[in-house]
Design a protein around this nucleic acid. Structure first.
Lengths: 117, 117
DNA sequence: TTTTCATATGAATAGATGCTCATATGTTCA
DNA sequence: TGAACATATGAGCATCTATTCATATGAAAA
């Protein structure tokens, strides 16, 4: 028979655990949160976002700045579009990308501070 | 013959690209940065960090809070120890973990704000 | 010392992910 | 319309990663 939540014994600090469980956020919030961090958790994407923080750029520009294929850049842009981290505007054949969210800028700034220490 | 950086033609906005390239941070900074974000980019780890933000907890407590095996928790703790995101203290047979870095708290807070919108 | 318990860790595996290549879409210009 | 070009996307593959299971370590109690 499987031990259930209530009759935990062993090393568990029941009071602490109960208290923490009550204060934990909803599953969805954690999933959303970790998905956003994961999006920032790739060197290519973080470079792209930093570049877009400096200037609005087209796919070709990003490709040149990062030294990666336009296909690779475009795939990553799609991911960041889906996560609402970048927005775009079309101008003729080109598509210009820029950051869509001020939170991204905040996260980048804090991250850079931390990374530099 | 491969086209080099200087004689790019096509769609590239040379001035912008040059400007952005100059302002880009060092490779190491981006790698460190993305590694930190990646560490936050997993539901299990983000839950663990949030729980540790609420209370100092032992492995067994975290296992109970998250509903995951102690082995899984321990593996994740090791990753976060290596990234200097959590610290620990031994007390008898138990090891208590807590957050080691105020940046982590900042990142979590901004992330939660964003995730909730 | 030996046993017990809390934690740590190595190996294995299933699933996720980033890039490349080929191809499709959509816009401009001839 | 058709050619040229910028971007987007699907498939495939190599790599990475989170968990499980088995085992090791380390501390306390018997």
């Amino acid at each position: 028979m499987k031990r259930n939540d209530v009759c935990e014994e062993r090393c568990i600090h029941q009071d602490m655990v109960r208290k923490v469980k009550e204060k934990m956020l909803e599953e969805d919030v954690f999933n959303h949160l970790s998905r956003d961090f994961k999006t920032l958790g790739d060197p290519t994407r973080v470079k792209m976002l930093f570049a877009l923080f400096l200037e609005e750029l087209c796919v070709c520009d990003l490709s040149s700045v990062l030294g990666l294929s336009e296909s690779a850049i475009s795939h990553q842009l799609r991911i960041m579009r889906d996560r609402n981290m970048v927005k775009y505007r079309r101008e003729g054949k080109m598509v210009f990308y820029s950051l869509s969210d001020h939170h991204v800028v905040q996260l980048l700034k804090i991250g850079v501070e931390h990374a530099r220490e």
